[in-house]
Design a protein around this nucleic acid. Structure first.
Length: 424
RNA sequence: GGAGACGUGGCAGAGUGGUCGAAUGCGGCGGUCUUGAAAACCGUUGUACCGCGAGGUACCGGGGGUUCGAAUCCCUCCGUCUCCGCCA
């Protein structure tokens, strides 16, 4: 969420910047400014009335204390009149603040200066590629065929138990999942991230804190009876650890990681690209999160991208790095790098990680601040990235490493799996 | 789920209608002393908003109410603890 201070100071520049998101925010910003004027004027009036009322109350107290009851009672009657005016101004204050919040909720994060103009994922900027795309043998098949051929994943069984998008992993498929989770967590720990196991359901305040609510209400599973939401990513509980927290600048950088299942309704997605593991309602992911000093957050972003690239290198998966254009950038992000691996049997790139700097967008909602050099509180920067999401990694691993007699397991995973080949 | 107790500043813990944004202790920060450190002593130490400033306003779990005035009384929600029940 943008701060009102920024809108007041940089209104014109903001309008310019949001054009790269293909958004015209002029009207929204002006609404905020107008409401803010009203709010300040109202507070001025309200504070004045309250000050008066406080003073009279104090006087009455003193009169009664010194035994001057008649004078006290006279004053009491006199002061009763302001109550309605005070109540009316309070109502107006609250209503105006609420309106400001509602407008601010509609405005996505300001794109970083390096974010290219663009409409869709086709305009994303490819930054680099790494690894050779394997040439598969003639009988190579996509991962959904491999999954059933080697009895690794049962999609139909998931449909029976729950519904589409909830696969059942079994046997070596299940063990491979667990191996990947442990591998990713160990790598994160080696990189200095503290491991957490957070709750998988969160309250509304947490959803608002990281930006899922109210913007993406329909994308989360909602347990209505208890008004809790199933997390779409570990980012939500992990980042919300720092809601309403004032850090010391020595605390930076704060590095956390955690494995959780992720639940996404994927409302509105349909048809192609949803086959097999490509798009699921429940999937596993290891997430890395950092809170950082504003001056350092972009070098931190680069480090996080490098960490994810390191994972892909160790898994020997060909990947490319994209800088998302304004049109593809998420609501809360200022800058995002996507990592995609090449799925050799589907012959296409699959997004496996999204690493973002949210600058103060989340921390403003979270009220996560630190004491700066001048001793003043200042909003921290928050960042996160998938390191990594499992399903598409698994898809690419199965497809890229298949041979006539089975599937080879990448060397780094063998100690985690306890097997080096999947065969019929 | 039932019964009871409680929710105050970084922590501990006073405060039951007025001068309380809140005693005191601990912790933190600055200083004196010291070769240095510790101890001792002195000072300082919540957050947000409005205002050029002086200063003002709000906040004692959240929300609402009573009152001229609420940390204090009432209602409600949330949470914690103890006992009972149930249970991995």
């Amino acid at each position: 969420m943008l701060t009102i201070a920024i809108i007041r100071q940089e209104r014109d520049q903001l309008v310019e910047d949001y054009k790269r998101r293909n958004l015209d925010v002029a009207e929204l910003l002006d609404q905020v400014l107008e409401l803010d004027e009203l709010r300040r004027a109202t507070q001025k009036d309200l504070d004045g009335l309250l000050a008066q009322s406080n003073e009279i109350s104090k006087k009455i107290g003193e009169l009664f204390k010194s035994g001057q009851h008649e004078e006290g009672n006279a004053l009491r009657k006199e002061s009763a009149g302001d109550k309605d005016a005070i109540a009316a101004l309070k109502d107006q204050m609250n209503a105006t603040e609420e309106q400001i919040t509602q407008v601010l909720y509609q405005i996505p994060n300001r794109p970083h200066s390096s974010v290219p103009q663009g409409k869709s994922d086709e305009d994303n900027e490819e930054i680099n590629r790494h690894g050779d795309i394997p040439s598969l043998y003639a009988g190579a098949v996509p991962h959904w065929d491999l999954a059933s051929k080697y009895n690794l994943i049962d999609f139909e069984l998931g449909v029976k138990i729950t519904g589409a998008g909830f696969p059942v992993y079994r046997g070596k498929g299940a063990r491979l999942q667990r191996a990947l989770i442990n591998f990713f967590l160990d790598e994160a720990r080696d990189a200095g991230y503290e491991e957490f196991i957070p709750p998988h359901l969160v309250n509304q305040a947490s959803g608002i804190g990281t930006g899922q609510l109210p913007d993406k209400e329909g994308q989360m599973y909602h347990a209505v009876a208890d008004d809790l939401y199933l997390i779409p990513t570990a980012e939500v509980p992990l980042t919300n650890i720092f809601r309403d927290v004032i850090l010391r600048k020595e605390d930076f950088p704060i590095k956390l990681c955690g494995y959780t299942p992720c639940f996404r309704r994927e409302a509105g997605s349909y048809g192609k690209d949803v086959r097999g593991l490509n798009r699921l309602h429940q999937f596993d992911k290891v997430e890395i999160v950092q809170l950082q000093h504003p001056e350092l957050s972009y070098s931190t972003l680069d480090q996080m991208v490098a960490h994810v690239q390191g994972l892909l290198k160790k898994l020997n998966l060909p990947y490319r790095t994209l800088r998302l254009c304004g049109g593809d950038l998420g609501f809360a992000a200022a800058l995002t790098f996507d990592l995609e691996v090449f799925s050799a049997a589907q012959k296409r790139w699959l997004e496996v990680s999204s690493v973002s700097n949210f600058e103060t967008f989340q921390t403003n909602r979270l009220k996560c601040r630190f004491k700066n050099k001048e001793g003043k509180t200042e909003l921290a920067h928050s960042l996160n990235g998938s390191a990594l999401a499992l399903p598409r990694i698994l898809a690419a691993l199965l497809e890229n490493n298949q041979f006539e007699g089975g599937i080879r397991i990448p060397e780094v995973l063998v100690p985690y799996c306890g097997f080096d080949t999947i065969e019929g």
